[in-house]
């Protein structure tokens, strides 16, 4: 049994034009020690999927389906039970290290907090552990830095703090939402290496959300491509990147910066823009942008089909 099993997850939110579905019937699994990467353009539903797993979406949002952690459905838990899980068994790393930390509390306070909330540790023990964690995520002079405030640290260091917070209670699952996007390229590299090292040292399952296929190719075991709130293609990373099936995946790969092109010249994956949630097509979500579209694409929503072993795609033309 996989650690996290998401089945038919649908997130609905009310607008003046009726209910829309930023995440629409999405199913996937993540096992211990595995890195699953969720990829797509912004607005494709990947961040919403992450927040749905954490159950941190706004109150007026409806979540349907099942999100099972070790077999127990998170959606059936009370808010109090969910609070006991968050930061303890599932934790989250955010995109913006500059704003993800509370500016008026020391980083020590913020790292110790999950320990004090979820374990029976005393303050002194929690402090010791926080210093260990700082050292583990590669902060120099951890015993001194523990009293620093976020504004005294660089962006990369702050992201390390956020990771230390996420690691504090030795969680089973970490949800990382674009953890390197806001950082410089060299720092990105370091943070990715850190995440990789942590996953291999422990048996943490990592759900890595990114729009950057280069990141995916380096770290992910499996990749899941999303578009318009739906899964378009899933499979082992090497297989998907080498033999993409879905036209959208092909587009994303085609847009990767390549050695033979001048740097900075990034191609648009596919012409056109992501449709707005309120006018999502009834058939394939990509229909209006797809180079290979036929009439049948617009008629019904394509089902996910196994094309190669462990490699699925939702395209009728595959």
């Amino acid at each position: 049994m996989a650690l996290l099993e998401v089945e038919h997850l649908t997130v609905s939110l009310p607008t003046s034009d009726g209910w829309v579905h930023p995440v629409d019937d999405v199913s996937f699994t993540v096992s211990r020690g595995e890195i699953l990467s969720i990829v797509g353009e912004s607005g494709c539903g990947k961040s919403t999927t992450a927040l749905a797993v954490m159950r941190l979406l706004a109150e007026n949002v409806r979540i349907a389906g099942q999100i099972r952690l070790d077999g127990a459905d998170l959606l059936q838990l009370s808010e109090a039970e969910m609070c006991a899980l968050r930061g303890n068994r599932i934790s989250m790393i955010f995109q913006e290290p500059m704003t993800a930390l509370n500016p008026v509390k020391t980083i020590g306070f913020q790292i110790m907090e999950p320990l004090l909330v979820h374990t029976s540790m005393s303050r002194t023990e929690a402090r010791e552990k926080a210093i260990d964690l700082l050292a583990r995520v590669g902060i120099d002079q951890p015993a001194r830095r523990i009293n620093a405030y976020p504004h005294q640290l660089s962006g990369g260091q702050r992201q390390r703090i956020v990771i230390a917070m996420a690691l504090a209670c030795e969680p089973d699952l970490i949800v990382a939402d674009e953890p390197t996007t806001a950082l410089d390229t060299t720092v990105q590299r370091q943070i990715l290496d850190l995440l990789l090292r942590l996953v291999s040292e422990t048996s943490i399952a990592l759900m890595l959300i990114t729009h950057n296929l280069a990141v995916v190719s380096e770290v992910a075991d499996r990749v899941m491509v999303m578009y318009g709130g739906r899964i378009t293609e899933t499979g082992p990373t090497s297989d998907v990147l080498a033999h993409p099936i879905h036209p959208y995946t092909k587009g994303l790969i085609g847009a990767l910066p390549r050695a033979d092109l001048p740097p900075g010249e990034r191609l648009v994956p596919i012409a056109g823009v992501v449709p707005r949630l309120v006018d999502m097509p009834s058939g394939c979500a990509l229909a209006d942008r797809c180079p290979a579209v036929i009439d049948a694409c617009r008629r019904a929503r394509p089902a996910e089909r196994m094309i190669r072993p462990a490699h699925q795609a939702a395209c009728i033309r595959a």
Partner: peptide, 11 residues
Amino acid sequence: MIGAQTGRFAK
């Protein structure tokens, strides 16, 4: 987040 945003507009 999408949810928070629409919430804010509604507000």
